[in-house]
Computed example of a mutant assay.
Amino acid sequence: MKRPSFSPLVAAVLLFCFIILIPNRYLLPMVGDKKVEEAAVDLDFEMFQGEMIQKKMLESPKYLPIYGSSELSRLDTFHPSNYFKVNSIGVTPFLVGRGGTQSFVHFLNFADQKDGLKNKKLLFILSPQWFYREGATQASFGANFSTLQAYRFALQPKVSEKLQLEGAKRLLTFDVVRNDAMLKTLLEAKIHHDEKTQMKANIVKPFAFLFMKVLEKRDLLHSILDIPLTRLHPKPSLIKNKTWDELEKNAEEMAKSRSTNNRFYIDDFYYNKRIKPKIAELKGFRKNSGLLVSPEYHDFQMVLDVLKEAKAKPLFVSVPVNGYWYDYMGLSKSERNGYYQKIKKQIEKEGFPVLDLSNHEYDPYFLKDSMHLGYKGWLPIDKAIIEFVKQE
């Protein structure tokens, strides 16, 4: 009787281990330049949670990363991605963010990409809605949480011990992290240095490392195989080679045609779908929002700290709310002004510049709806990008 051969099985296991354990930096050339270019406006959730495409983007001088949240998806005619598609300045905006992507999610991403941020210019758009009393909720963080970035933070940290400690403590406040036994153990070992905690971490570390490598290869495969879904549709007749006055006039005319049924200068489609059905119950809804006491300020400080450690060159954009709408919702003008002043002071204390747009709260059509930039609101950002890119 012929003895069974285990050679094919052994060879398969060895090949699997080789593929899993080979560092991704050696496989980065497999992610083509065309793929990175397509990802610049794709707003792909998997890309936000991964590292490969962002790593390659940061290495290229042709991209200007723009970090933010749901406003990035408002790809209207005057959005930077459309504007600079038509009026080239030698760099392409690369969008990173979606709804619920608040400061701490960006912190984890920056911590993972720290090496590529050195001397890199970037825009960071701040939303006042991040700074409500509760800060990042369990639901919003869980929906945008990157398991890969968290494991890399735990196993291969690139930030200072101070930020490792702060990051670990903050991660452990979220259910999605506490429910991951391996990750929870690794993070607790950064905080508690007793023998029992360290021993538990040492036991799980090999398994956690292997799991992280699997996640890295999954990210690589997605980076290579993903099919982009988002396409730009610029309108050159409205934006090509126009003066800023002409652009503002065109933006206002477009907005007027799409905002006809409410006194808040909100886009009709958004108003009809999101506001009109519950307009009565929204009156005074935000009067206790606690805009000045949010835990988001600490999360945002970690963003400032990691960018400072990385020696990045960010320009922060402080976006206003729709003053007409927020007056109706009961969030006082004094509290809003307090937020604008507080966030500006926090940024400037770290030596970073701020494009403060807070004086546009009552500028009709500056926002597309109750909170998101649109139409006229993108124009000062487009202008600032041109000046920012020219700076040495």
Results as ranks from 00 to 15, higher is better:
V105G: 03
T77N: 12
Y26T: 11
S140A: 13
E37W: 12
K333W: 08
I381A: 00
E51A: 14
K287V: 06
N288I: 07
L232I: 02
E252M: 14
L21A: 15
E248Q: 15
R152W: 07
F84R: 03
Y328A: 07
T230G: 02
G99W: 00
R74A: 14
P157N: 14
S259E: 10
K158R: 15
D194N: 15
L355W: 06
L221I: 11
L379D: 04
L43K: 05
R263L: 14
T92W: 12
P23D: 10
V306H: 05
L163R: 11
K196F: 10
I275P: 06
F300A: 04
A310W: 00
E134L: 13
F78G: 07
F18E: 11
L379K: 06
G330S: 06
E134I: 11
S289M: 09
H298E: 14
H192T: 13
F84L: 08
G290F: 13
A280K: 13
K278M: 05
E253Q: 13
P29C: 07
G50S: 12
W325Q: 04
A201C: 09
A136F: 01
A201E: 03
R258C: 12
P61V: 04
L307Q: 02
V41H: 05
E216G: 08
L163D: 12
L72A: 06
Y132C: 07
D42T: 03
Q113E: 11
E348D: 12
P23Y: 11
S160A: 12
Y326R: 00
K2I: 09
G116R: 02
L292C: 06
K190L: 09
D369H: 05
G68Q: 01
L165R: 14
E392Q: 08
S257T: 10
M329A: 12
E161C: 00
Q341R: 14
K249P: 03
S103A: 15
I386V: 14
K121A: 02
P234W: 01
P93Y: 10
V354N: 05
S294T: 01
S5T: 14
R170E: 06
E348R: 12
T185G: 01
D356A: 02
I347N: 02
K55W: 10
K34S: 12
L148N: 10
K383G: 01
D299S: 08
A208D: 10
T77L: 04
P65D: 09
Y270F: 12
P295Y: 02
Y339I: 01
I125L: 05
R274Q: 07
L331T: 04
V176D: 09
K35V: 02
Q49S: 10
L232C: 04
R152Y: 04
P295L: 08
L9F: 13
R231M: 08
G338M: 04
T260A: 08
K376S: 10
K158V: 01
T243Y: 00
V389Y: 09
H222I: 09
T92Q: 15
I203E: 12
P236Y: 00
S160F: 07
Y26H: 08
Q301E: 11
E296W: 04
S5W: 13
Y83D: 02
E281K: 13
L355C: 05
V293Q: 13
V36I: 15
A181V: 00
I347G: 03
T197H: 13
K62N: 13
